[in-house]
Design a protein around this nucleic acid. Structure first.
Lengths: 210, 210
DNA sequence: CTAATTTAGAACTGTTCGGTTAGATATTGC
DNA sequence: GCAATATCTAACCGAACAGTTCTAAATTAG
């Protein structure tokens, strides 16, 4: 019944398109954009060279598709971590914990494709995509803060926009430290501290006059 | 009188060694490590190909020297921004402002060699260097916090270590956002907000029970 | 002025890379 | 079974690249 698209005529492909892209993600992730050669992709994706060009296009096209797939998956999981029903503080901690965990995953290179690899690609479309993705992340956190206001977890004058940006900056910082080899355990602890920090009430300055 | 090293015998060099390394910094900064070819370095440094190999060694060796020179310069300026005699809050803001300003400098690529380029280099020595540099940055901020305690700007139970890490994480986040094209003005404003945040007193939780 | 020494410039070499082409292989339609 | 179609394997091609070599130029020592 699900044979909706009648099997195409010629020799069937020996690879799965999205599966190949997921493998390509690993290649770009571990070798970077410039560092990844076509041969690396051919080997890593399990797709023959001519098929690679025919099906996906050149390296840039593959990278863009990888980037979009990666961002979608990562965004969905981040949203899940952030929006699952729990206390605000735990939502924020979960969000940053997720950043740390995915950046320190065994089997993948440390760091994050969106944060550590893609920004180095000198390409207008990539840049634009990253800006949108970043804005989306902030919006997600902002939304959670606003829900927190509705739920009475934080006061209605809580500086939502500012703190949302700070949460994402923290996630960036944690991810970058993952990339240079900071152990997961350390980063998870720092994520908890960060969650506490961004919820502190806007203060009277510490030594007011000096 | 300062002709301490008697002029060497052969044909004099047509380039200045540290000057060439500074130009190499720009090359790596704008093109990344993998993206920079020897020809790029030859052109950018104003050094002939054979001289480049004779004097500096291969690309990796050049990069390591560039990295050390860059870190030394950047570290000194960061320390200056952080330790100049002013209120603690302004020191911290100055530190992060400096991160933003150097990451959004006109004429250089956005971002930071230590943060955006070097971590992608898959090399044990580079990794080690980056870890030390990161630790040095935290230590610098910690020192400033401790001075603040001595000066009575913050209470003696201020969580120095935690907040120092958070300051550096913020600087990382701001720098990464610079790289994807966030305008300097925005980042400078965020740096100020970050300085305020990391000085907030360790709080009683907002809605204590839930 | 001449020989020795060091760098500069240009050309050379083997390798890797991106992208394409040609022939073999597997599948569908009839 | 046979033609048509689509993919796979392998080889190929020109360009770019890293690293070296060879020769010309600039300087010092004597």
């Amino acid at each position: 019944m699900f044979q909706n698209t009648a099997r195409p005529r010629g020799r069937p492909r020996s690879f799965d398109e999205t599966g190949a892209l997921e493998k390509a993600t690993q290649v770009f992730w571990s070798k970077g954009y410039d560092g990844a050669t076509i041969d690396d992709l051919v080997a890593g994706m399990g797709v023959g060279r001519p098929s690679l060009y025919a099906v996906f296009g050149d390296k840039r096209a593959i990278f863009l598709r990888v980037l979009k797939m990666y961002a979608e998956k990562k965004g969905a999981l981040a949203a899940k971590a952030l929006l699952s029903p729990q206390k605000l503080r735990d939502s924020l901690a979960g969000f940053m914990r997720y950043a740390v965990e995915s950046a320190t995953e065994k089997g993948s290179a440390p760091g994050c494709l969106l944060l550590c690899v893609a920004p180095l690609v000198d390409d207008a479309e990539v840049r634009k995509f990253l800006q949108n993705a970043a804005a989306g992340g902030v919006a997600l956190v902002e939304g959670r803060f606003r829900d927190g206001i509705t739920a009475g977890e934080i006061p209605s004058d809580f500086p939502v926009s500012v703190r949302a940006i700070q949460v994402t900056d923290f996630a960036r910082g944690l991810t970058m430290r993952a990339q240079i080899g900071t152990p997961r355990k350390t980063l998870l602890k720092d994520a908890e501290e960060a969650a506490d920090l961004v919820l502190l009430p806007r203060g009277v300055p510490l030594a007011p006059g000096r």
